[in-house]
């Protein structure tokens, strides 16, 4: 079965990498990816995690004071 992903989008690149550091520090697998065009016309970056890690990722980022613009 194909793995399902969730995409976290942030206001800035700085926050994207801050989120990556927080997630890696908590051993949650993640990848910095280009924002999908159907999410944003922006040429920025986003964080991709496994769909099964969405809640854990949200909590870790919340605990680190990192606010995402949304999850897709």
């Amino acid at each position: 079965m194909e793995e399902q992903y969730k995409i976290f989008v942030f206001k800035s690149t700085y926050l994207t990498f801050k989120a990556e550091r927080a997630l890696k520090g908590a051993r949650v697998a993640c990848k910095v990816v280009t924002k999908p065009r159907d999410i944003s016309s922006d040429c920025g970056l986003a964080i991709r995690v496994s769909a099964s890690d969405e809640q854990a990722a949200s909590k870790i980022m919340g605990d680190s004071g990192i606010t995402s613009l949304g999850v897709w």
């Binding site: 690149t13 994207t16 280009t34 970056l45």
Partner: peptide, 21 residues
Amino acid sequence: NPGRSGHRMAIEANRVIFEGR
């Protein structure tokens, strides 16, 4: 180029900027 493209080297450049800050 940091902050522009999304390929691995651009992402690594971004990480360099982040770590510097």
